Computed example of a mutant assay.
Amino acid sequence: MIGNTALADRLHLSDGESVGGTLVSVADGKVNWSNPILGELSVEQFHVRLIETEERYDLKTSSGVLENCWMYTERSRQHVHCDQGVQTLADWKLVVAAGEAVTEPPPLLTQRGDASFAFENISGNSDITRYDLNVRSEIRYIESRHTLALRYQEESADSQTNRNQWRTSYQYDQFLTEQWFATGNAFYEEDEFRELDQRSSVGAGMGYQFFETSFVDLSAKTTLNYLDEQFATGLERQNMAFLWNLDFIWRFNERGMELFHRHAFLHAFDSSDDYEVTTSTGFKYPINGSFSSVIQLDYDYDNLPAETAIDKTDQRWTIGINYDW
C-alpha cells in the first residue's frame, strides 16, 4: 500500500549516510526510493541498513507476507509494525518485495542455470589431462520446480585413464505452502574409479525452503529412496536408503559474486556402515557479463566402497570458467 510523499521517511545506508524521501518499492534486489531533490533512486539491498517510514506498506519476506506495515528503528535495529504484530527484521536482504511490487503478479515461468568447465593439461615428465564439467538448470512454473543436473569428470595420466565418472539427476518439487514442498528425485551414475558400473535411485519425501531471495537461497529436503548398485567386482546391492540434501547460495551482489554449498548424505537402512557424503563448495567471481571464474572443492566420502583397496575419501579442487543464464 503506497501513500503520499512523507518527507519524514528516511533511508539509512550501510556506509552511515541517510536520505530522506519516500519508499516506492522493493523489487529485484533493489530498494526504490523517491527524494524531492535527487529524484528517483535505486539502491541495492545489501547497501540498506535501516528504513523509517510514516506510511504503511505490504512486505513480502522469505517467510511470507506482512500486511499494512510501518517501519521504525530502535537501538539501531529494524522493526516493522504490521497487522500481524511487531517484528524485528534481521536484514533487508531477506525482503523479497515491498509496496507496489507485492501486488504485481509473479511470472508464471522462470528459468535459470549455470555451467562450469575446468580443463588442465600437463606435459613433460608426465602427461596428465583433466576435464571437469558441471551443468545445473532450474525451471519454476507457478508452484512447481524442476531441477536437472549433470556432472562429468575424466582424468588420464600417460595415456592411461585413471578417472571416469559421470552423474545425472532430476528433482521435482511441488510447493504446498510458501516454504513446505513435496519432492521427488531420480539419479543415475557410473564411476570407473570406484569400480561402480552403475547406480540408480528414485525417491520421494518432503522439503523446506528457508530462504529464496535475490541474495540468499537455502533449502533442505529428506527423501526415502530405492537404491540399485552394480559393481565391477560382480557385487550387487539393492536396498532402501535415507537421503538428505541441502542447497545454499549466498549472492554478495547482483554482479554475480557468490558463495555456494551443496551436500547430500545417503544412508542405507539395512546396514549402519553403508553411508556416504557428497559435497560441493565453491566461490564464483564475475569476469564479464554472464561469465565468471569459479574455484570449487568436491569432497566425497564412501564408508563402504566396492573393495577395501579403494580409498573411502575422494577430494578434488578445481578452478574453471562458469556461464550463467
Rank of each mutant, 00 (worst) to 15 (best):
I142M: 06
I142R: 08
I142G: 02
I142A: 07
E143W: 13
E143C: 08
S144T: 15
S144A: 14
S144D: 13
S144M: 12
R145E: 11
R145H: 05
R145L: 14
R145S: 10
R145W: 00
H146T: 06
H146W: 14
H146L: 13
H146S: 07
T147I: 14
L148H: 04
L148E: 04
A149H: 00
A149M: 08
A149K: 03
L150Y: 10
R151G: 11
R151W: 08
R151C: 03
Y152W: 08
Y152G: 01
Q153A: 09
Q153P: 02
Q153Y: 06
E154T: 08
E155H: 05
E155C: 02
S156M: 02
A157K: 10
A157W: 02
A157R: 13
A157V: 07
A157P: 00
D158C: 09
D158R: 12
D158V: 06
S159I: 01
S159P: 01
Q160K: 11
T161H: 06
N162W: 04
N162C: 03
N162V: 02
N164D: 12
N164F: 07
Q165I: 12
Q165M: 11
W166S: 03
W166Q: 03
R167P: 04
T168F: 13
T168Y: 11
T168C: 08
T168W: 10
T168A: 11
S169P: 07
Y170K: 01
Q171H: 13
Q171E: 15
Y172K: 14
Y172F: 15
D173C: 10
D173M: 11
Q174I: 15
Q174C: 12
Q174G: 14
L176S: 14
L176P: 03
L176R: 15
T177M: 05
E178H: 14
E178T: 13
E178W: 03
Q179N: 15
Q179I: 02
W180V: 15
W180A: 12
W180G: 06
W180S: 07
W180E: 10
F181P: 01
F181V: 12
F181R: 01
A182W: 14
T183A: 12
T183H: 00
G184Y: 04
N185P: 03
A186V: 07
A186I: 06
Y188V: 15
Y188M: 09
Y188G: 04
E190R: 15
E190I: 08
D191L: 02
D191W: 00
D191A: 07
D191Q: 06
E192N: 15
F193A: 13
F193C: 05
F193W: 07
F193N: 09
F193S: 12
R194P: 01
E195T: 03
E195Q: 09
E195I: 01
L196E: 01
D197F: 01
D197K: 06
Q198R: 13
Q198T: 09
R199F: 07
S200N: 08
S201T: 08
S201E: 08
S201N: 10
V202C: 02
V202A: 04
G203R: 00
G203I: 01
G205R: 02
G205S: 09
M206Y: 05
M206S: 02
G207S: 09
G207T: 04
G207C: 07
Y208A: 05
Y208T: 07
Y208K: 05
Y208Q: 06
Q209F: 06
Q209C: 06
Q209I: 05
F210D: 02
F210I: 12
F210A: 09
F210P: 00
F210T: 04
F211H: 05
F211L: 12
E212C: 04
E212G: 06
T213Y: 00
